[in-house]
Design a protein around this nucleic acid. Structure first.
Lengths: 365, 365
DNA sequence: GTGAAAGCGCTAACAG
DNA sequence: CTGTTAGCGCTTTCAC
C-alpha cells in the first residue's frame, strides 16, 4: 500500500465512522492555497484574483465542500439565525404567517429556525432555551401560548417580536390585528341585519381573544343587547361544544361570532348535525379568512387579516431593532369584514329581546 | 469608579454593541472553577462532586448561561441535528406527520431543523444545502416535490429517509403508505355498492400519486370498467376543476376517488356549488383522513394512514442507520378504508356501462 | 494578492 | 475530583 493510500475496506469504515465533512482545509490543499485565501474567495471578499476565485469555486464544488455554519458563526460571533415559534402549526392561518415570515427572513439573508413544538407554555419556554443554544439573534413568536410575563422574560434576553396580540411590556415588539374593531364591525353588521340574539364563542385565553371579547362586549352593550358568551379554545371541538351549549340555553342565538375560522367550522358542522341551516337559522362569522373559508360549501363570512402584511411588518420591525437599535413598537394592522353566504338576516322579523342581564353560558373544560 | 465597575452608560452600550452571550468561561470564573469542570458539571458527566455540580448549576442559571450548540458540535464533531423538509406545510396531514417526527426525534435527543421552504424542486435542493451547512446528520423528507434523481443525490451525501413514496434507489430509506392497495380497496367497495362509473381525480406527479393511479387502473380494469381520469395537483383547486371537467364530460361519474382529502374537499365544494348532492348524486372517497374529514358536515370516507406510525418508523429507521449502520429499507405501512357518509350506493339501480375505451379527460394546467 | 497566526466557545484526553 | 492542553472549522487582523 502506497503512502496516502488506504485499503478500500478501511476507507469505507472511515467514511462510516467519522462521517467527516469536507473542510476549508481540504479545499485549500486541493487548490494549493491557504485556508484564508480560500475563505475569502468563496465568500466573495475583495483581494482575490478573479482567476483564483473561479478555480477555488470549482475545486470546492468538485470535492463537495459545504461551509460549516457553526464554525462560521463561532468565528464571526454574529449569527444570522432567527427563532420562529409557531403556536398552532395545524391552524392554516398560523402556517401562512409562518411561511411568509420565513420567506421575508430569507429575502434579507436571515435564516428562520422554526419550532413546531410550542404547544404549551412549558414546552414553549424550553423551546426558547433550545433556540438560544442555536445562538439566534432574535425571536418571532406566532401566537404562542405564552403569558405576557413569559414573553417579557424572553424579551429581556433578545429582541422579541410577538405576532397575534399586544403584550403589556414595552420591550417586546408586537404585531396584531385590530381584533376589537373587527368584532365590533361584525356585531354592528349583524345588528343592522336585524339580529338581536348574537352569541360569541370566544377563544378563552388564547392570544388575541381578550380583545375580540372586549369588542363583542362593547358593541353588544352599545346596541343594548344581552351578552351570550361561551368560553372555548381555538379548535374545531370548541365550535362544536359551543353550539351545543348555546342551543341548549334558553336564549338561542340567531347569529354566532366565532373566535376564528376553525371554531366557526366546528360550529357550522355541529349546527348542521343538529339540523339547523346556515345562514337561514343561524348566521356565522369567523376570523382570519383561512383558504377554506372562501370555499363554496363553507362560504364563511369572516374578519380577514393579511398574513403577508403581518409577516412583512414583523421582519421589518426585527431588522429595525437589530440593525438600528430601534425601540420596540406595537403595530396594529387592519382587519376587514369579508361578506359571504354564512350571514343573512334572521328568519323571523320579530326578535325576542330577553333581559339585559348577561347570560354567561359557562366555560368549556 | 471602582475597579470592575463600569459607568452605567458604557455598560448599556456594551450590551447593545457586542450582545455577547454568557460563556462557559464566565460561569467558571464566577464559580471559581475551570472551564472543563464546569462543562462536566453542567452536562452531568461523572467525576464531579454533587455539591460542586449543584453550585455550578445555580451560578450558571444566575448569570444566564446558555450553552453554544455551534461550539459544542464543533468540538464534538458529532451533531444532533436532523433536517426535516415539509413538502406541503399547509396540508394538515403533512403537518401532523412533521409534528410527530419532531416529537419522536426530540424523544431520542435529536433536534429537528425544519424547513417550510421545500415548495418547488429548486428551492428544496438549495434548502438541502442550507441544512448541510447546519451539519445535520441525516435528513427526513416529508413528501417533498423532489424527483427520484434529486433524492438520490441527497442520499449520496447523508442518510436520507423519504416519507410518502417509494424511491427508485436502494440507498434511500422510504416509508410509504400502501397507496395502491388502498385505492384498490376503495374501488372494490364502490363497485360492490353498485357504482359503475367511478372517476379518479389524481395527484399528477406528486409523491405517492403514481401508486394510487396504478391502484385505480388495476381495480377498474379488473372490474371491467372504463377509466375516468383527471390529472390534478394535491390542492383544493384541483378538486374543483376536476369536478368541472368530469361533469362536463359525456360520462358523468357516480363516484369519485380523489388523490387526497384536500382534493376531495375541493371536489365536494364544487359539486355542491353545481347543485349536486353527496352522496346521493355522487359518492366521494379521499385519502389521508385529515382531522376535518371526520367532521359532521364533511363526513368524508377516506383511506386512513397513521401519521404517528409513519413518524415512528421514520425515526427508528434513521436511528438504525445512524447508530448501527443499517442498510436502507423500504417500509410500506397499511392504509384502511374509513367509512363515512360521503359514500352510498348510486341513485339509480341501472348503470349505463359505457364503452370500455379509456376516457382520458385531460390534464389540468 | 496571499499566507501565518490568533482565537470564537466548547469538549476531550491527559495529568495531577 | 479537578485543572491543563489541544484542537473542532472558520474568520480576521497583520505581515509579506
Amino acid at each position: 500500500v502506497e503512502a496516502g493510500e488506504v485499503p478500500a475496506l478501511l476507507a469505507l469504515k472511515e467514511v462510516h465512522v467519522s462521517k467527516s465533512f469536507v473542510t476549508l482545509d481540504d479545499v485549500a490543499r486541493a487548490a494549493g492555497l491557504s485556508r484564508a485565501q480560500v475563505s475569502r474567495a468563496l465568500r466573495g471578499d475583495a483581494g482575490v484574483l478573479e482567476d483564483t476565485r473561479e478555480r477555488v469555486r470549482q475545486v470546492a464544488a468538485k470535492i463537495g465542500y459545504s461551509p460549516n455554519l457553526a464554525a462560521r458563526n463561532l468565528a464571526t460571533a454574529r449569527g444570522t439565525n432567527v427563532g420562529l415559534l409557531i403556536g398552532e402549526p395545524l391552524n392554516p392561518f398560523h402556517m401562512q404567517l409562518a411561511r411568509a415570515v420565513d420567506a421575508e427572513l430569507a429575502a434579507v439573508d436571515y435564516d428562520a429556525v422554526v419550532s413546531l413544538r410550542a404547544l404549551s407554555e412549558d414546552l414553549a419556554l424550553s423551546e426558547v432555551d433550545r433556540l438560544m443554544s442555536l445562538r439566534i439573534v432574535g425571536i418571532i413568536l406566532i401566537s404562542t401560548p405564552h403569558e405576557d410575563r413569559a414573553i417579557s422574560r424572553i424579551a429581556a434576553r433578545l429582541p422579541c417580536i410577538y405576532i397575534g396580540k399586544q403584550v403589556d411590556n414595552p420591550s417586546v415588539s408586537t404585531i396584531s390585528a385590530n381584533d376589537r374593531d373587527g368584532v365590533i364591525e361584525a356585531v354592528e353588521h349583524l345588528v343592522s341585519l336585524g339580529h338581536r340574539s348574537i352569541a360569541n364563542i370566544n377563544g378563552g385565553d388564547s392570544p388575541g381573544a381578550a380583545e375580540r371579547i372586549a369588542g363583542y362586549r362593547l358593541a353588544m352593550s352599545a346596541a343594548g343587547l344581552p351578552l351570550l358568551e361561551v368560553w372555548g379554545n381555538p379548535d374545531l371541538d370548541a365550535g362544536k361544544r359551543g353550539v351545543d351549549t348555546l342551543m341548549a340555553s334558553k336564549t338561542q342565538p340567531t347569529a354566532i361570532i366565532a373566535h376564528n375560522d376553525i371554531v366557526a367550522m366546528g360550529a357550522i358542522n355541529r349546527l348542521k348535525g343538529l339540523g339547523l341551516r346556515v345562514p337561514e337559522d343561524v348566521s356565522l362569522v369567523g376570523f382570519d379568512d383561512i383558504p377554506y373559508a372562501s370555499s363554496e360549501t363553507l362560504s364563511l363570512s369572516t374578519l380577514r387579516q393579511d398574513p403577508l402584511d403581518q409577516a412583512r411588518a414583523a421582519v421589518a420591525e426585527l431588522r429595525a431593532r437589530l440593525d438600528a437599535g430601534a425601540v420596540p413598537r406595537a403595530q396594529i394592522l387592519p382587519v376587514s369584514l369579508c361578506h359571504r353566504r354564512s350571514v343573512a338576516p334572521p328568519a323571523s322579523g320579530t326578535q325576542q329581546i330577553v333581559s339585559a342581564v348577561t347570560e354567561d353560558l359557562g366555560q368549556l373544560p
